[in-house]
Design a protein around this nucleic acid. Sequence first.
DNA 1: TTAATATATGCGCATATCCACATATATTTT
DNA 2: AAAATATATGTGGATATGCGCATATATTAA
Lengths: 116, 116
Amino acid sequence: MQELIKVSKALSDETRLRILNILLERECCVCEVMQALEISQSRASRNLGILEDAGFLTARREGTWMLYSLSESSENRIATALTPLLKEYFSNNEILAHDRERLRHSVRVGPGCGEE
Amino acid sequence: MQELIKVSKALSDETRLRILNILLERECCVCEVMQALEISQSRASRNLGILEDAGFLTARREGTWMLYSLSESSENRIATALTPLLKEYFSNNEILAHDRERLRHSVRVGPGCGEE
DNA sequence: TTAATATATGCGCATATCCACATATATTTT
DNA sequence: AAAATATATGTGGATATGCGCATATATTAA
């Protein structure tokens, strides 16, 4: 029961739903989440952590970046059962469409990206 | 998005999951919920109200009783999509099984029930 | 090693949540 | 109308949550 409560709490927040929405598009680093949602770094990081802890996300490191993506189906049965529902629910929302739009224009800066 | 947040918050609490669990068995009045879960009257009433507001429950009056039951599928798409998941999730839990057991022994008292 | 960049986290504050207690409301019975 | 019963709700207190700010940590580049 505690797992279900954790999953539900993870979905009980607008910031986290917005994060799931853009991660349905593609894997993102923290700074891309910040840019797409126009939120602070600590806010992005903390909410990504909550979604990861609830089983929605998987993190991997690539250089200085932490890349977050939706978990595989095997990781968390509840979370992945909900994902199709979420995707459908996210399709007709102004804010979420706006976030996805900004994601397309977001830049991943850092050592790995030499400036030209 | 706010509707999804409301539904998620409704599921983010152990008391409310326990209420959904016994209502999967059958329609209940507030005093039966109190007895099955061994909680106070105000706690039962308030949490039933939260589940109703989120679209999970429907209430009808019968004399002095308020009878709560799971909503029909048409009422709330999100809530009803989750119900089968919940049902499966509730099956192997000690607390929830105990609640269902107490529900079987609960008594609906009141003016309608003449003592013999 | 030092500097630079990306991310995580300690902390304090504002707000939300949950509960028990007391009380208000609604319905039925007398 | 008054009493009895079931339920809803106002209130205050304890705890949880979400955030910004500052700082710590991790990795890479020089």
